[in-house]
Nucleic acid binder design. Structure first.
Lengths: 257, 257
DNA sequence: CGCGATTTGTGCACGTCTTCACAAGCGCCT
DNA sequence: AGGCGCTTGTGAAGACGTGCACAAATCGCG
């Protein structure tokens, strides 16, 4: 949908800087800005201030301005940013002007959901093929796509231009799949398997581990709990507060694999 | 499985520091160390050096040592770290000595997968209840749990001690669900909906946006592509390299909602 | 018992990221 | 035309995170 047509685009509108190497922190926030901008666009506003957009994106307004200024100066002082123009710029910088093909490997529990996740389709990506190593799953249809055997990866990679791969296999298979993806020319991998992948230079890997996210939250829960119970009791009771440490968790049950 | 019994635990073994406020960056890595440690434990090694563990966790060894030193000194110079002891310590710091109950709201595409994800169960969490607002889904059984209507949240929250909530609803419902979770005492939220949540102070929110991860990868793809094509042609051809900018992506199709 | 090999724990320097604060620029109103 | 209010873009300072390099500590062996 190219409904973003900035009204009075002057002659040199749409000029973008020559992909200056943006700070990673900035790159990681651009997609969030983009999402916020689409939301703003739907409300009908044609411009938005850094204050308004930063609120919608959940960041500090100075940080947002600095981030956007790295793309070039697309704001107007006293007015704000042109929503449609900014959307175009960010999409260009992120390389979303073309719909990128993604290969998804592993159609187990999580892979199944990812294959059906419409957020990929609506935000610049197209799942080009589904793969699995389990012969039982090959042939199955998932949201309009037929699951292929992983051995067909090289053939499919030739037909489509596959640059991005998503790994949703068990950890034990992840490294092997990664190697195969790299072998057919994939240079970006999104890894959902709970393990570290080793890849050659030039290949980017991002990892998403759902359990890790919960464990980080668990830490904060633990901290909040120890903050509210410890200072309440002066000497400490439930968890004995010694000058140098707490009672050992030795007797409690440990959790693990 | 409390099979981690460090052999010769001296009298004051297991003493942990009183939850010093660790740097966020360190906290975010501890779960990764924990996962690597479990992997090492399965190989039978009783101790591991910072070099070996850092390789398994995919980080710099100095960083790992500094991280671990913040928990207290649990390594032995010349030897390394006691695997079982370190597992206990990290699990304690992360608050994983108790299996935490988690409420999952939204059993659509993604929520369905999360409900069946065994990584939660094996790494310290228990999905206590599933909720959805759609009456059609209420009553459905997913991996042993019956989906309840979101209105039953307060009742369930009283029975279980719910401190962590996972939101896997569409973005439009996420804020409302967050408010309801906070209302029943949830103080940590893992948000899969592509939107910013506003919550009171003291409530932690972590966000996972699958499309954003892909968009970040897309940026790097874009950059890699412009690096390999641009320097090849001196003056720039495909993407005209002007002193201040490139040709506009104006004519190309924009992607978005 | 002493020595060398090994590995931890950390001081220090460097780079990155964040935030404040404000000058410069823009549009609108009079 | 001029002034006023609003907003961007950025300099500078500080907080934070990273990685090197090395002293201190421990073990094993002769």
């Amino acid at each position: 949908m190219s409904q973003h047509r900035h009204p009075g685009t002057p002659s040199r509108a749409g000029v973008v800087p020559a992909l200056p190497d943006l700070p990673e922190a900035t790159v990681a926030r651009l997609p969030e800005y983009l999402r916020a901008l689409h939301a703003v666009a739907e409300t009908g506003h044609e411009t938005i201030s850094s204050e308004g957009l930063s609120a919608a994106a959940g960041v500090n307004s100075a940080k947002l301005r600095k981030d956007l200024s790295q793309l070039g100066s697309y704001g107007t002082r006293g007015v704000g940013y042109d929503v449609a123009l900014l959307i175009d710029q960010i999409e260009y910088v992120l390389g979303l002007t073309q719909r990128r093909a993604v290969a998804l490997v592993g159609v187990g529990n999580l892979g199944h959901a990812l294959a059906g996740y419409d957020g990929f389709a609506t935000r610049g990506f197209r799942i080009a093929a589904l793969f699995d190593a389990d012969p039982e799953r090959v042939g199955e249809e998932i949201s309009g796509l037929i699951v292929k055997h992983i051995d067909e990866l090289p053939r499919v990679a030739e037909e489509e231009s596959l640059a991005i791969g998503v790994i949703a296999t068990p950890a034990a298979s992840a490294q092997r799949v990664a190697d195969e993806l790299v072998a057919v020319g994939v240079t970006s991998i999104l890894n959902f398997a709970p393990c570290v992948l080793s890849v050659p230079d030039g290949v980017d890997v991002r990892k998403v581990d759902l359990a890790i996210e919960l464990q980080i939250l668990s830490f904060h829960e633990h901290r909040k709990a120890s903050l509210t119970t410890l200072p309440a009791t002066t000497g400490g009771s439930t968890l004995t507060a010694l000058p140098g440490g707490l009672a050992a968790p030795d007797t409690q049950e440990a959790i693990g694999t």
